[in-house]
Design a protein around this nucleic acid. Structure first.
Lengths: 197, 197, 197, 197
DNA sequence: AATGAATGAGAGTTCATTCAT
DNA sequence: CATGAATGAACTCTCATTCAT
């Protein structure tokens, strides 16, 4: 990848970051291409040089975040620690991303309102892969006897729901630091998973 | 309230139900005034006789649902049963509404993307009152020694997050009945709240 | 059809006439919805109340003219006169429309550049039906021994090409009246068709 | 003309050929600078090195074709054969170009929709010179007694209209070869011109 | 001589909102 | 009360054109 290509790739990423930001602030439907461009001091026309349309831009945007989150999560799953510890780290990571990305997270969550039929299957696939990493930790924990749950899928849904929700109520100006939230959530959710002997 | 007024009030409610339906189906931003009117075989112009604008209509819509949900929830809180039982009923009720109303629930949840500054405070107030009913059950439970939580507010947020999330993944065509979901969620979340002796 | 419907129908037709005019003046691709609306002192938004999009509007526009022309032409074909006389009348009629409608005629002629796949078959069908009326006159003339041509389809194409072309060069300010053109064209083209004994 | 200039001249002509092709395929308004450049594996920016803008490019494009056609036509007019033979050859040549160049021919035909005031007079002049060559053949034929027409200009217009029209309906996949068309058209149109003794 | 990148004007389209009837 | 009709602002997207490199 030569200089020019690297520059272009960087620009594309800049645009995605800008889009993330604007969407986080205003929501998808209230974020215009103009807004996204303005954030980078570009004109909206330029966006179309890099992305074929708004949906494509948004799709790449969500893909970037989800891919990053997934990679990190895969690292956690592979670690050689107890399942409880893994889940704690996974929760910390997930909460951290949820707080940071807010609205973009919503795109991941409800693709139907935003994306056309073409992109939805891929989005759901990626999303499920990510969620599947939680399943793996739960599975392992159940096998090793650390966890005990009536329905694995529901347990995972409770965990994701609870943590995704954070972006709704969390405010940096509030009384909790992100770390506080991470600790307390992890504590509670692990209590829910733990086998009671 | 004379006949004319009663008729008008009925019509207003019809419109709100229709709006709920359309929004649940298509999401707020994809629900046009035309769509809402069409559902009732009216023309969109007529909606403006009953509601000053789209936001007002949406506001009333969310208000209706939230008020109903709250009233029922208050009944539960006042019942003379154990806190665990109360919480179980509260969860059942909340989940049932979440499944039924889907998108409208989202309005309640993220007013900033939809409503203007004028309506937000009131919405948040109502929403907090509703959430406060969960707090009361938790409080009682902690006092009576049935529950034990590190942070009451967080416990409530986990509960609401987990349950609100259901509307994202739940499908009537799936393998779970609403009752299944209610039971399993209640079981898991109560496990999280329960004092471990 | 009540008053309101009649009014609406009239408006639709007004719009079509206006569109014809603007297209005749500027060509299809240079005629904006704004232009078409301005001609009628409307705003472009209003056009979308009557027609779903530009293509639909243009399609109806061409359909109107073609249908009218075809109806009149059918009357001519059914008349009880010699084939030569029929052809003379058909030519007069066709030339008159070609001069009057100019550009709209072009739409009929080259639908591929303008219309999407959905509308093209119907357009071609209508156009062929119209052209078929010329074929019928030629057929009759050949059978009756009045005409003699090496290839009927080509004869028809020559006739249509020659007459459609008029709108390219004809100007009301020039030295020929429409009637002059009609006479001379008819004379020449009939000479081309006539059986030489 | 040194090497550099020759290279540039060659490139200019390449561009014109490419533009002809793209316009023939897509029509003028649907042919973007990008399309034209892509055909030559260039970027659109480069086109502006050779031509000042799209109109200039199109103008040169049409000029190229018309000039070539005219030169060949002049050769035909100067030949020492009967007028009927001359006209037959002229028709063959014209039809052949019309079939080959399709859309570009349209540019020649209706400059008003495409070109700005600056270029139109020149275009019309060239076009009239070309058409004038047909006039000369007709004139000669009338003088020599081979042809007989009521109005020379109209006769020419019929001929050009009929033949230009071919590009509208002709398809290489159809049942007629270009040569078929040339023969039948020439036969019919000459019958129209011929003096009937 | 050519490219990649950016601009900006304008097109078609949508929709909340208004209002005479 | 309700409707049909119209408005106008906003939005997405396109493309001829420019320009630094």
């Amino acid at each position: 990848m030569n200089l020019r290509e690297r520059k272009a790739a960087k620009k594309r990423e800049d645009i995605l970051r800008s889009a993330s930001l604007v969407i986080s602030r205003q929501g998808y439907h209230n974020a215009t291409m103009e807004d996204i461009a303005a954030e980078l001091l570009m004109t909206k026309g330029a966006l179309y040089y890099y992305f074929k349309n708004k949906e494509e831009l948004l799709y790449r945007c969500h893909d970037l975040i989800l891919t990053e989150a997934k990679e990190k999560m895969e690292g956690i799953v592979r670690m050689d620690v107890s399942c409880e510890e893994k889940m704690r780290m996974a929760l910390r990571h997930h909460i951290e991303v949820a707080i940071r990305e807010k609205e973009v997270f919503n795109l991941i969550v409800k693709p139907e309102t935003t994306f056309s039929q073409d992109n939805i299957p891929e989005i759901i696939k990626k999303r499920d892969e990510y969620a599947g990493l939680f399943d793996r930790i739960i599975d392992e924990g159940v096998e090793s006897g650390e966890f005990e749950v009536p329905e694995k899928k529901m347990a995972r849904m409770i965990i994701l729901g609870a943590t995704n929700w954070i972006q709704v109520w969390y405010s940096p100006e509030g009384k909790y630091s992100p770390e506080d939230v991470e600790e307390i959530y992890a504590g509670q959710l692990l209590k829910m998973l733990r086998k009671i002997s």
